[in-house]
Design a protein around this nucleic acid. Structure first.
Lengths: 356, 356
DNA sequence: TGATATAAAGAGACCGGTCTCACAACATAT
DNA sequence: ATATGTTGTGAGACCGGTCTCTTTATATCA
C-alpha cells in the first residue's frame, strides 16, 4: 500500500538534528551515546529521533569507527550437525560480547574457502574463524594475518601459521577408541573417513591434508603398531563422501581376505552412511561388525543397538573459538595457542567383545 | 612476527591510484569494474593493485551504492535440522545471485527476534527472511516494510502483513497424516508440539500463535471431526519443549482413561523426544503406540522401526524463500503470495494397522 | 583546416556516521 | 578586573568507496 516498495531514503542524524534544532554533531553525540550533552538537549534529540523512527546506519558507523561488530565464520558445511552445533557455540559467544556472526560455507573446497575469506575480509569483519579445508594451502590465511584481521582456526590446526586453533584432542580420541576396540578383542580394525582421496590407497599419513583426520589416523595407527598388529595402514580408507561411495568402501573392506571386525567412522555423517551400508548388506551390529562413530549425533542414540561414540563437545569447541577470537579482537595479550577440547568415549552397544 | 597485530590502515583506491599514477576516479573505475577505461591504464592499475594487495572495502562500497549484498535471516534455532537445512537452501540461492547471508538466532523468542531484526536493518541488509516466533506480534515486521526492506516470511505466514511467505502445506500434510492413521484403524490420535503453552489445556485453536502449528492442528482436528471422532482437541498437547517436558506430556497422554494409539509429532525434535520417551517407558513402536513425525531427519530412517514421516522438503523451502527475496530485492514485479511447498507422507514402519 | 563528435581521464561531491577542534558561556581563582 | 578552567555546542574533516560533471585528447567529417 502506502509503504511504497521503493528506495526510501532513510532517516539520518542530520534529519534528526534538523528536527531537534541542534547541530548534526550534537545529535550524533546523543544518538551515538558518546561525548557530553545536556539533559535537556538529549531529551529533545531523543524525542525527534523517536518521532522520525531513526535507525542508525551501522554501515556508516563501521566506516568511521573501523569496527564492524561482525565476526566471519567459514565452515565446511552448515548442514552437518558438527558445524551447526559449532556455529551455535560461536554465535552464543559472539552475542554475549555484542558481536554478530556472518557464515559462509566452503563445502570443504579450497577455492570456495578462499573466496569466502576474501569476501569476509572485504566486509571488514572484525575477526575470522575458519575451518581450513586443507592444511597445506595457506596463502589466503597468511593474507588474513597480513590484513591485520584476527584469525582462529577451528577443528584443524596449522602449526606453520602461528595462529590460534581450537580442535578436539583428535589423536587421543582415536587412541582411546582404538585401544577400547583392541581391549574388546578386535584385531582387524578399519578407519573410514569422508576425506577426498587422491588415488585409492593411503600410503603416507603425512599427506592427509586435514589435520584432524591426520591426527586421528596417526593415533589409530600408533595403537595398532604398539599392539603389534600388522600393516596398520591397510584398513585406513578415505573417500566415503556420499552413500554410494561409502557402500563401495564398506563392500571392499568386508570382501577383503581378512575383513575388519570393527569400523571407526571419522564423523557422524560417515557413521550414518556406514550404518546404512551395513544395514543394507543385512549385517548386524555388533554381531557381524562393530562400529564407533565420532560425534554424539542425534541418530546415534536411537539406533538398535545405540552407537558407541566419541563425544566431541562441539558446542564447547565453538564457544571457545568464539571467545578466543573476541579476546584477540579486543587485543587481550595472549600467547598463540592450540586449544584442545577433550573428548570422551561414550560406551553404548555397537561394539562386540570377541575372541576369548 | 612482522605482521604486527595492530591497526594496519588498509590499501585504498587512492593508494592504488597514486601508485599507478592515475586519478582516484580512474583507479576506482578499474577496481570497481564500471565506466570506461583504456586497456593500457587498466593494466597499469591492476598491476599496482596486485602489488599493493588491494582489497576493496565492501563497507564503503555499500555506503555509496546503498546495496550491501547481504540478506539477513532470522531463524528459530540453527541447531535444529529444520533450520540448518533451510539456511543451506537460502545460502545456495543467495550465493547463486551473488548475495551473502547473515544469520541470527531468535531462540523462538519474540524479544530476541525483534532485536535481531533491528540489528540486521541497521546493517542495511538488502532483504530479510524471518521465521516469526509469533504470528500475532508484528509491529517490528511492519517496521521492516516501512523501512523499505524486502521481507519474506519463512515457515509461518501472517496474512495481515501483506508480505510473501514460504511455508509447507501444513494443513494438507496434517490431514494426510491423520487420514492415514485413521485408515490404519486408529481412533484415538494425539498431536504433540513443542510450542510454549500458556496454561495446560488447549481450548481454542485460533490462539496458537505459530501459523504452521495452528494449521496442522486445524487439519488434524478437521479430519477427526469429519470422521465423527469425539472431542478432537482433547489430545492436542503443547509444551514438549525438552526431554523432561516431553516425558511428562507422553506420560500424561498414555495414562489417560482411553490413551491414544497414535502420536503425531510436530517436528523432528519433538519426534525424537517422543521416541526416547516411549523407549524409556519400555513401549514398543508400533505395537504399543504408533507415531508419525514431521521432517525427514537423520534419525528417523535408522531407528527400529524406521519412522513414518511427513517429508517437508525444507531445502526447497529455503531455496524458494531465498529466490523470492532476491526477486523482490531486484524489484521483479510480483504479486504478494503465499508459496506452499508440498509435503509427502513417507511410509515406513512406525504405524500399526489395528482394529479389523 | 576547422568544426564537431566521441572516448578517456580528472575533480570533487556524496553516502551517514564519528571525532577533532574551535569557540562560546559561565564559574572559579588571583 | 583579568586570567584560567570547565562544560556544552557547532563546524567541518574524515572513512573509502561511487558517481556526476567537466575537461582534455583523439577521431570523424565537411
Amino acid at each position: 500500500m502506502e509503504d511504497s516498495a521503493h528506495p526510501k531514503r532513510s532517516v539520518t542524524v542530520a534529519d534528526v538534528a534538523k528536527a531537534a534544532k541542534v547541530s548534526k554533531a550534537t545529535a550524533a553525540r546523543v544518538l551515538g551515546g558518546y561525548g557530553v550533552v545536556s539533559a535537556k538537549i538529549t531529551d529533545q534529540v531523543m524525542a525527534a529521533a523517536a518521532a522520525l523512527e531513526y535507525r542508525p546506519n551501522e554501515l556508516a558507523r563501521s566506516m568511521s569507527t573501523g569496527r564492524s561488530g561482525i565476526i566471519g565464520v567459514v565452515v565446511g558445511d552448515i548442514e552437518n550437525a558438527f558445524f551447526s552445533l559449532a556455529v551455535r557455540g560461536i554465535s552464543d559467544a559472539a552475542r554475549l560480547a555484542g558481536f554478530n556472526v556472518i557464515i559462509a560455507n566452503s563445502g570443504e573446497e579450497l577455492d570456495a574457502e578462499k573466496s569466502a575469506v576474501d569476501l569476509l575480509i572485504g566486509k571488514r569483519v572484525d575477526g575470522l574463524i575458519v575451518t581450513p579445508a586443507r592444511c597445506d594451502s595457506i596463502d589466503h590465511l597468511h593474507h588474513v594475518r597480513r590484513a591485520g584481521v584476527p584469525l582462529v582456526l577451528f577443528d584443524r590446526a596449522i602449526p606453520e601459521l602461528d595462529v590460534d586453533a581450537v580442535t578436539g584432542d583428535d589423536r587421543d580420541a582415536a587412541i582411546a577408541a582404538t585401544r577400547y576396540l583392541i581391549g574388546q578383542g578386535h584385531r582387524r580394525l578399519a578407519y573410514v573417513s569422508a576425506m577426498d582421496a587422491e588415488g585409492g590407497g593411503l600410503t603416507d599419513i603425512g599427506r592427509i591434508s586435514n589435520s584432524a583426520v591426520r591426527e586421528r589416523v596417526e593415533g589409530f595407527v600408533s595403537v595398532l603398531t604398539e599392539a603389534g598388529l600388522p600393516n596398520p595402514l591397510h584398513y585406513v580408507r578415505l573417500g566415503a563422501t556420499d552413500q554410494q561411495q561409502t557402500d563401495g568402501v564398506i563392500k571392499r573392506l568386508l570382501s577383503d581376505g581378512s575383513p575388519p571386525t570393527a569400523l571407526l567412522a571419522s564423523d557422524s555423517l560417515v557413521g550414518l552412511r556406514i550404518f546404512k551400508s551395513l544395514q543394507s548388506l543385512g549385517l548386524s551390529i555388533p554381531r557381524d561388525v562393530s562400529m564407533i562413530s565420532f560425534l554424539d549425533a542425534d541418530w546415534t542414540s536411537v539406533t538398535v543397538p545405540p552407537i558407541t561414540i566419541v563425544d566431541q563437545r562441539v558446542y564447547e569447541m565453538g564457544k571457545l573459538a568464539g571467545e578466543r577470537l573476541i579476546a584477540r579482537i579486543e587485543r587481550t595479550p595472549l600467547a598463540v595457542e592450540r586449544l584442545r577440547v577433550s573428548t570422551s568415549l561414550v560406551l553404548r552397544g555397537s561394539v562386540a567383545t570377541i575372541g576369548r
